[in-house]
Simulated assay, not measured.
Amino acid sequence: MISKKILGMFLVVIGWALAACNWTVGDCYPREEWERGAGASAPIGPPEPIFTSSAAGDFRVAPPGEPQGAGERETQCNKTESSEESSEESPRGSSESSTDSTCSGPGDTAGDGQTFIFCSDACGSKCPTSGVNGFSQTIFNFVTKIEDDGTQTPGGWQEAAVDFKIKRWVDVYPEFWSCKMTIGVPLRNEAQGKISAELAAAISAKVSSTASRKIMKSDIHMPQGIFCFRFTEEMKVRMPEAVKGARVTKP
C-alpha cells in the first residue's frame, strides 16, 4: 500500500514537470529551436519556468500536418495588443519623424525691432536672419527730465522707460515675455559732448541687443525671471561704459 502511494506521488511530480515544459520560459522562440540550440543567445539548459498564463488555450500544440507557424506563432507569446497597435501606427523606418511636431507654426522672416527673438539650433529657421534681429532705437523714447543749464558736467538728464520684448523658440511653441528698465543718460558729458535723444536711443539699442544676446547664449533654457535679472545687471555695466554718466534702473 505504501509503495503505491509513493508511486502515485512520483507520477504527480512527473506530470507537473512535464506541464511546466509547455509554459513560456525566458525569451520566446519555438521549442524546436531550443532543442536544436538555435536562436540568438538561447539559454543553456532549461531555466526556472515563468508562468505567463493559466488559460487553457495558451499552450496549443500544432496538430500533425499543420505547420507550427500557422496562425499565431508560439514566438508571439510576449506580444501585447498595445505593442501591435504601436508598431502599426509608428512602423520603424516610417517617413514620419518626431521632429515634424517640433517648432510648429510660421517663423519670423525679419525682426520687428521691438522683439529680440532667440532660437535653439533645432528651431533656427524660425528666427530672423543674422544681423537683422535686435532692438530698434525706435523703442527708446528719451524724454528730458532736467534741462542742461551749462553749469555742470555732465549736464542735464534724459530718460527712456523701455519694455524689452523677448521671444524664445526652443520647443514646439515659442515663449513671450518682457523685461522693463529705465535708462538714464546725461544731455551732455565730456566724452560725447551733447547727447541728443536720437544718439542716446541708437547707443541704447546697440548695447541692449548685445547684452541680451550674451545672456541668452549662456543658457537658452534660462528661466524668464532669471533672464530679466541678468539682462538688467548686464545693462547696468554696459551703459555707463557706452555713455559716461548713464544709469540703468528698474521702473
Rank of each mutant, 00 (worst) to 15 (best):
A122C: 04
A191F: 02
L199G: 00
I226L: 15
M216A: 09
E89C: 08
A197Y: 03
K180V: 12
V172D: 08
T80L: 09
C119A: 09
A19P: 00
Q158P: 07
K145L: 13
S83P: 04
K180N: 12
A202G: 09
E35L: 15
T99S: 14
A55M: 15
S208R: 02
N22T: 13
A55F: 09
I6C: 07
G57H: 11
A242V: 12
V25K: 07
Q224Y: 00
Q114A: 14
F10K: 08
F135Y: 08
E32M: 10
E234F: 02
V207W: 01
E234T: 08
I215W: 02
G107R: 09
T151R: 14
F116W: 04
V248A: 11
G107K: 08
I139D: 05
V143M: 10
C123Y: 04
I117A: 03
P47M: 01
S136W: 00
F142D: 06
T144F: 04
I166W: 01
P67D: 09
S94W: 11
G15C: 12
G39I: 04
S212Q: 00
P186A: 09
S196W: 00
G124L: 14
S41V: 12
V237I: 07
E81L: 15
A17S: 07
S196N: 08
V13L: 15
R168D: 12
M216V: 02
G131N: 03
K79W: 07
R213Y: 07
S101H: 04
R92W: 00
A55R: 12
C28G: 06
V61A: 11
E190S: 10
V170Y: 06
R230D: 15
N189P: 01
F231I: 01
G39T: 03
A20M: 13
F176Y: 05
N133E: 00
T249G: 04
K244H: 07
L187D: 07
A202E: 15
E190N: 09
A55W: 06
S218C: 10
I117P: 00
G156Y: 01
P240C: 12
F116I: 00
G57V: 14
A246Q: 09
I44F: 06
T249C: 03
V185F: 03
H221N: 10
F10A: 15
D219K: 14
T52S: 11
D219I: 03
G105M: 15
W157R: 12
M235D: 02
S54I: 15
K250I: 13
E48A: 10
S41E: 13
N141V: 14
K180G: 04
T151I: 14
D100Q: 10
K79S: 11
A211V: 15
E96P: 03
G113V: 01
Y173R: 13
G155P: 05
S196Q: 06
R168K: 13
I14W: 03
R36Q: 14
I14A: 11
I203Q: 04
I50C: 05
Y29W: 08
T182R: 11
E241R: 08
F140E: 01
C179H: 06
A110K: 07
F229A: 09
S209F: 01
